[in-house]
């Protein structure tokens, strides 16, 4: 039975606290790797010729890659296996060459039947501050 180690200390967490930022420059190799690892072979993500034929400037990133990259920043912060909820709205496409950065800001904390829960707003933005996705997460703390 899994008993994940809790990384966050409930008493030390305050509203407005920010988790360490993860930044990543998106490459076409990322898109191909994610296609292969997830089975999402939509050519708009992996076939430059098809994407341009469809009127796009290039291939663009999978939304679920963006959600996964932001998820990595959440588990780096709270520890793997300690999420209770992770919800996002996809707002913009991502493009190769963009630098994507995570932002995780604590909005509250409460003791619940399921344990000590910390709530945060989560966003992924590019180098110009354009939001690619935004949402919320609930994670467990010790």
């Amino acid at each position: 039975m899994a008993n994940p180690v809790l990384k966050l200390k409930f008493d030390d967490i305050n509203e407005g606290d920010e988790a360490p930022v993860v930044s990543h420059e998106l490459t076409r190799t990322d898109l191909v790797k994610y296609a292969g690892a997830s089975g999402d072979f939509n050519p708009m993500h992996s076939d430059e010729v098809a994407a341009q034929a469809a009127g796009l400037p290039s291939v663009f990133g999978h939304g679920m890659f963006s959600m996964g990259l932001l998820g990595r920043a959440i588990t780096d912060w709270a520890g793997a296996g300690n999420l209770k909820n992770y919800t996002v709205r996809f707002t913009k496409q991502t493009w190769p060459g963009e630098t994507l950065s995570t932002k995780i800001v604590v909005t509250g904390k409460e003791e619940t039947d399921e344990g000590k829960v910390v709530t945060a707003e989560v966003t992924l933005v590019n180098q110009d501050g354009e939001s690619k996705l935004s949402g919320t997460t609930k994670v467990l703390a010790a």
Binding site: N3, V5, G39, G71
Partner: peptide, 21 residues
């Protein structure tokens, strides 16, 4: 195991691709 599991856990979005995986 050090992180409290018996085996590697799932990344948060893994199940989305699970029917393929």
């Amino acid at each position: 195991k050090e992180a409290g599991f018996d085996a590697p856990p799932l990344p948060p979005t893994w199940t989305f691709a699970s029917a393929f995986l």
